[in-house]
Design a protein around this nucleic acid. Structure first.
Lengths: 136, 136
DNA sequence: TTGGCACTCATACTAAAGTACCAAAATCAT
DNA sequence: ATGATTTTGGTACTTTAGTATGAGTGCCAA
């Protein structure tokens, strides 16, 4: 937020300078009005593009980075989260058990807890919900 | 493409008119140079934003639209695809049956065919594969 | 040191999911 | 019209998934 204020302040100052310079240059007869207008047009065109790009980027980034807090918020433990990731990869309970070096019973326990915490009835629904809240 | 050329032509013409008008208005003394510059700046700023938005939109669309060919390539029928979408939403066979107004047996048949065509062992794996090849 | 929590595992079920095989309609292109 | 494909549905069976319950172990903070 501080950065944004700083950038905008600098931008406004730069624009004021540009205005004065262009006015002076025109009055002194060194430049034609067409040239001044063209420079102004180009500068503002570029500013428009940059501002728009930043705005859109800020909208896109949150989708990738909201995860960690939500996981804690739902009370999902490390092990449960590992199981969740395996589920989303399409693994069966047995396959997950083998990869995490635990028994299938343990995996089932984790899955049941996950379904409760994610408020899902099936593992497929758990995948969907987990993706929606951005934790996978 | 024709549309793009037309839009750009219209844009250039409009800009030339704007230039001439602003020049005339200034010379005739009706407007101050500050006002003319401000108008030019605002107009080009807006143009910059719009152009940039269109460019980014064109880059974003391909990600969503590579699907149709792949679906045909895998021999997935319309009905099967509908079932696939329901599966990815976390629906059970019974729930899918109710939404598509068919029996659970029918859904099971479709699911079995989907698993074969997507080369998946489970519905969760089918979701994963379908997402990877971009058909959902 | 002790209660709480995460992790582990088992048994015994119930409920879904998935397979195999068959078959009747509906749809569609030639 | 007709052969091919799609869609539909059933039965019977096997395999996963998911629930319920109980319990042992290890770790960490009060």
């Amino acid at each position: 937020m501080k950065k944004t204020i700083f950038v905008f302040s600098a931008l406004i100052i730069a624009l004021l300078i540009l205005f004065q310079l262009s006015k002076y240059a025109y009055i002194s007869g060194d430049l034609s009005i067409e040239f001044v207008i063209a420079v102004i047009a180009i500068v503002f065109f570029i500013i428009g593009v940059i501002i728009n790009k930043k705005t859109l980027r800020k909208k896109a980034i949150p989708d990738i980075s909201i995860n960690t807090e939500k996981i804690a918020e739902l009370g999902i433990s490390k092990r449960e989260y590992e199981v969740l990731l395996q589920i989303s990869k399409g693994q069966s309970n047995k396959e997950i058990a083998d990869e995490l070096f635990v028994s299938e019973s343990t995996v089932k326990t984790h899955v049941s807890n996950l379904l409760l915490k994610l408020d899902a009835k099936r593992r497929t629904q758990a995948i969907q919900k987990a993706k929606n809240i951005g934790i996978i």
